[in-house]
Amino acid sequence: MTGSLSLIYSTFGSEEEARDVAKTLLLEKLIACANHFPAILSQYEYQGKFHEDREFPVLFKTAPELVKPAGERLLGLHSFDTPAVLHWQVEASNPGYEKWLLGQLIKPPR
């Protein structure tokens, strides 16, 4: 199994926003797939205040060379002032799935 895929994780303030952002990234072929998870409870301190909010997590699947443009686009679309946009490299994946996923993406200039 090869490892030429990347994952991007973020959370959103509403399910609608999560769906809209994912759809935009899919249509622009910056990602090939978005997995939406049920709402979670996030607890954090921001600007000196404690927050406890319901958020909607999404896992975006893409190629390593598209992480930067996909992440920048995600930041531009996101409604949060300081959204979590986390990335990690996939170490191994099913070769057939990887071939399909990479085939769904734009081909970035080299």
Rank of each mutant, 00 (worst) to 15 (best):
L26A: 08
L25W: 09
A22M: 12
G13K: 02
T62S: 10
V58T: 05
N35H: 12
F12W: 10
A92Q: 12
L86M: 07
V85P: 05
P95T: 13
F60T: 03
N35L: 09
S79H: 04
V67L: 01
D20L: 14
E72K: 13
T2E: 11
P95Q: 12
P108A: 15
H78Y: 08
S10M: 11
I31V: 06
G3S: 01
L77Q: 10
A18N: 11
L74S: 03
V58H: 04
L77A: 10
R73T: 09
D81F: 12
A39H: 14
E91V: 02
A84L: 13
Q104T: 07
K107G: 05
K68Y: 14
E52L: 13
G103K: 02
K61D: 10
E45P: 12
K99W: 14
R73S: 07
E17M: 14
A39Y: 06
E91N: 00
I31F: 04
P57E: 06
W88R: 03
L27K: 15
F80E: 13
N35T: 15
S79D: 08
W100T: 07
K23Q: 15
L75G: 00
H87K: 12
T82F: 12
K68P: 09
G96W: 11
E15L: 09
Q104G: 11
H78N: 02
T62K: 15
E65M: 08
E52I: 14
P83W: 14
R19Y: 05
E72L: 10
E28C: 02
P64E: 00
L66I: 05
D53N: 05
E28P: 01
S10D: 03
E45S: 00
L101Y: 07
